[in-house]
Write a protein that binds this DNA or RNA. Structure first.
Lengths: 202, 202, 202, 202
DNA sequence: GTGTAATCGAGACGGTACGTCGAGTCTTGTG
DNA sequence: CACAAGACTCGACGTACCGTCTCGATTACAC
C-alpha cells in the first residue's frame, strides 16, 4: 500500500520502529499542508517527527515519495461509504461531492499540484502517483458507470473512461486553476450534464 | 502583456537591451522544454543566453515568472486563426484540437504543471498564471459558446463557465495525469458529449 | 598632487566639473571614515556625491586610488606649522604628537590599514601610497634629524633612516594593532628613548 | 588555539573530518601566499581542498578567520628554539632575526596587512588577531627584557611594553610599507639602539 | 551662431564572489 | 540491525559590487 517494502523478512536485527514511521508521516502531512511541498525541508520533517533524517531516507527515497505516502495516508483514513442509491446521478454526486469536500477542506490542492509536477519528469513516480491518486479515485466511479450501463441508465456502448475524464476533469480543473469555486451546485451540474451528454451522444 | 514594466519613462539612462531580453526568453523556453522547470537553474539560463544572472533578476523576480513569460511568448507566436465554420462542435473541435496539439507537441505539460504548482502558494503569481494561460485560452471558447446560444445551437440559459470547464477540464486532466492519450477522437468525443449534455440538461 | 592627470591639454570640450571632484572626495572621505574601505561601495560614494559612477571612474581608476586621494586631501588640509624650537626632542615630540593626534582623532587607522593592504599586491599603488603617506611624513622628521646632527645634538654618523623607522614604527605599530594607547607620554617616551639610543650607540 | 570550538562533547554524531580540516588550512595557506587574501575566493579554497564550501563555513565564519588560522598554523609549525645566550642584545637579535626571516621569506606581509585591515573594523576579530600574532610574538621578547632587568642589563624601571613596541614597531613598519629592506644589519641596529636608549633614558 | 568635443547623470550590462540553504549520503556511537 | 546525531558533498539560490557601456543632455571653446 505504501511506497517502500512493508518490512524486513522475519525478525533479523532490530525491528522497524512503528512509532517513528507514523510520526514521520504525520509530521510530513502537517508540514505539507501548512507550507506546501517545496517549502518543507526534510530536516524540518525530521525535527518535527523527532527522528533522524537517515531514518526517513531509509524508508522513502525522496521527499516526493514521502509526501505521496503521507497524503495518501490521510486521504485513506477518511474513506466514506459509497452509498449506492441506485441512481447514477445521485451516486456520482455523492462520490464526487465527498471527495471534493475532502480535497478542498484543507490545502491539499498545492500538494497534489506539486506531486503532479514531480510526476511529469519521473515516469516511475508518475506511475506511483496514478496508482494512489488517479486509479484509486476512478475505480468507484467506474463501478457506478458500469452499474448504470447494466441497469440501462446509460447506453451499452458508453465509453466509461471518457465519462470518468468528463467527471473528474472539470473538478480537478477548478481545484488546480482556482478560477471558480467547487461547490455542490457545480458538482451537480457536472454530473447532470455529463450524464445527459453520455445518453444523448450515443 | 509581460510580467514586468514595459520600460522606464522616456530615455533616462542606458536603454534596456532588447537582444538580451529575447535571448533570455528563448534560452529559458529551450531549457525548460528540455529539462523542466525545477531542473533548470538560473545560472544555466544566463549562460545559455550569454547574459548575466543579475540581468535576469532585474526584469523577472523569480524563475517561475520568467518561465511564465517564456512559455507564453512561445504559445503566442503560434496563434492560429480560429476558423469559424458556424457549427459549435466543429468550431470547438478546431479550437481545442489545435490547442491540444500545441500543448502536447512538446513537453509543455510539465512546465504547465510546475507553474500550476507555483501558483498554488502565491496568489499574485496565480493571478498572472490565470491571466496568461487560463483566461486567454477560455476567451475564444467563450465566444464560440456565446455565438452558439445566439444561433440556437445551445439553449439560452446555458451556463457558459460550466461548459468551458467541461471542455477544458478533461483535456487538462489527461495532459497532467497522463493516464490516457489526447488525440482527435478524444477531443471530438469530449466536444460531442458536452454539447449534447448542455442541450439535454437544459 | 593627485593620482590622475591634472587636466586635458588646453581647453577642448567641456571642462571638468570642479564641484563634482570636490563632492566625490568629500563623500568618499566621509563614508570611508564611517564604514571603512571595504564596506564602502562606489555606488554609495556616487550616490552620496550626487554624481554618476562613470564620473568617478573617469578620474580615479580604482576605489583604492580614490581613497588615497580622499584621505590625503583631508590630511593635507590640516598641515600644522612645524614649530622649530631648536631642541631635537621637542621638535620631534611636536611633530609626531600632532600627527598622531590627527591620525587617531578619527578612524583613519582602518583606512590606512586598507591602503597598506592594497599596496602589498600592487607595486604601482604601493609607490603612490608611499609618496603620499610615507615620504611626505618622513621628510619633516628627516629635516629635524639632519638639523640635530648639524647642531651636534646627534653624532655625525647617525643613520637617519633608521632613526625615522625607530620613531614612526612604534606609533604605527600601536595605531594598527591597537594593543596599547597612543598618548603624549608614549610619544615622549619613544622620542626620548630613540634620541638617547642614537646618541649612545654611536 | 584555533578559532572554533575544539569539538562537540564526547562522540555524538559523525566526528569532524580531520583530513578535511587540514586540507582546508593547507589549501588556504597556499592560495593566500600565492594571491593574497582578497584575490582568493572561498570557492577556490574549497575546490583546492577537495571540500564543500559549506564545510568551510561550518567551521570558520569568515574568510579572514580562516586566513588567520591558516597562517597561524604555518607560523606555529616553525617555532625556533629561543636560544638564550645571556646577552639581551644577542637574544633579541636572534629572536627578531628568525621571526623577520620567517615573515619575509614568503609573502606573508600582504596576508598580515589584510588581517590587520580586517581587524580594524571588527573588534572580535581584532582580539583574535592580537592573541595569535601580537601577544604570541611579544611574549618571548617580554621574557628577554624581564630577564635583562633581573640581570642588570637594563635598569629596574624599564618600560617593557614601550621596549617591545620600539623593537617590533620598526620591523613591522618596513615589512608593511616596504620603503626599506629588512636585513640582519637593520635588526642589529634596531636592537642596539633600543637597548642603548632604554639604558640611557632611565 | 554653429559645430566639435569632452563632460555629466542615469542606469543597464557582464562578471565574479558572496554566504546560505536544501537534498541526499555517510560515519560515528548507542540500543 | 535500527536509529539519533550530525558532518559531509553537491549544486543552486538570490544579492552585492565591480568596472564598462550606452544613452540623452549639457557646457565649453573654436570657427
Amino acid at each position: 500500500m505504501t511506497t517502500q517494502e512493508t518490512a524486513a523478512p522475519p525478525g533479523r536485527g532490530r525491528p522497524r520502529d512503528e512509532k517513528a514511521r507514523v510520526a514521520i508521516l504525520d509530521s510530513a502531512a502537517e508540514l505539507l499542508l501548512e507550507r506546501g511541498l517545496e517549502k518543507v525541508s526534510m530536516d524540518a520533517i525530521a525535527r518535527q517527527a523527532g527522528v533522524s533524517k537517515a531514518t526517513i531516507y531509509r524508508w522513502w527515497p525522496t521527499k516526493e515519495s514521502l509526501a505521496l505516502d503521507s497524503v495518501y495516508r490521510q486521504w485513506s483514513a477518511t474513506r466514506p461509504e459509497p452509498h449506492q442509491t441506485g441512481s447514477v446521478s445521485e451516486d456520482l454526486i455523492a462520490l464526487l461531492g465527498s471527495w471534493s469536500k475532502l480535497a478542498t477542506g484543507r490545502p491539499y490542492g498545492r500538494i497534489i499540484a506539486a506531486l503532479l509536477s514531480a510526476a511529469q519528469s519521473d515516469p516511475g513516480f508518475a506511475q506511483q502517483y496514478r496508482a494512489h491518486f488517479v486509479d484509486q479515485r476512478r475505480e468507484p466511479g467506474r463501478a457506478i458507470l458500469r452499474h448504470a450501463i447494466d441497469t440501462g441508465q446509460l447506453p451499452p456502448g458508453t465509453d466509461i473512461e471518457l465519462g470518468l475524464d468528463l467527471l473528474y476533469g472539470p473538478i480537478y480543473h477548478r481545484l488546480l486553476n482556482g478560477h471558480a469555486l467547487i461547490n455542490e451546485a457545480f458538482i451537480r451540474d457536472v454530473v447532470t450534464t455529463v450524464h445527459a451528454g453520455l445518453n444523448a451522444a450515443a
